[in-house]
Amino acid sequence: MLQLSPAPHITSPKNIKKIMYGVVGALIPVLMGSIYFFGWRALFLCSLSVLSAIFTEWIFQRVTNRDIRCLDGSAIITGILVAFNIPVNSPWWLPVVGSFFAVFIVKQLFGGLGYNIFNPALAGRAFLVASWPSLMTGNWTPPINGTLSGIPVLDGMTQATPLSLLIMKPNLNVIQSLNSPTMIKTLFIGNTGGCIGETSALLLLIGALFLFIMGYADWRISLSYIGSIFVITGIFYFLGVTPVNPVFHIFSGGVMLGGLFMATDMVTSPVTLKGRWIFGICGGILCVILRLWAGYPEGVSYSILIMNMFVPLLDRLQVRIFGR
């Protein structure tokens, strides 16, 4: 049980580069969107993050006498995703440190690309949230042409993103606004407060569609992850456990970013189809539980990180069934 069977090792460097730069390309529209919503600082933080990721990888490979592969694209993706996971108001060193942790501790120390157990960018985010919680969870800025909560009426009342409004036990008035079609539209376009790259469901979907068509990511994981969140929060909505509708749940916070770009990471998701369905569904269940009952407003990052741990087991489970 303790033996880890690492995820697929893509051996041909040419292939890796193609896929990795494909993913980078898919992230470009989201990046452009975030510049539109939050200003040039979003690009600035993103560049710092990418540079830090590449530099860390280069130093590590240099010192340990390995092949220098810091430009194969994977470090760039990690850098972009770390920056996507922090608020735009963060100090410059936050993405730098986050990317350093993601690449050095989570990726290279475990053996480099293909051997890491956890998604580096998400682990980097978890590290940042635990280390600088006030910068990561209490430091929101409204988008340039919008409001923090996405609902103009409420903005004078409270300084909160849509999701943190939800955890404050809002009154009926607020809940009604959260459930309104205007709110859903704002969330879909992404004109609300949040981390740099998580707000626009539309742009994330466009990027992900490209990945699915090219076969660089598996739609099954995204569908089962986001779908199970939708179904469970839907049931909870009708049971009265959560006051807001399931559409709000899947468009708010990091569900789209996590479900489309992080859960689908080839290295840290299961190899087999069945494993991928289980991975996505369990991740979705965990995410809802964390979101509704844990201390932080959001649960996406931890749900995927926890499921990352089960990937070797899910792979083994599958192999054993086939072996019989």
């Binding site: 100090p91 440190v97 590290f127 635990a130 280390s131 600088w132 919680p133 910068l135």
Partner: peptide
């Protein structure tokens, strides 16, 4: 003033 709090937590 902005140290790596994670290091004094259990992880």
């Amino acid at each position: 003033n902005s140290s790596v709090i994670l290091m004094i937590l259990p992880p």
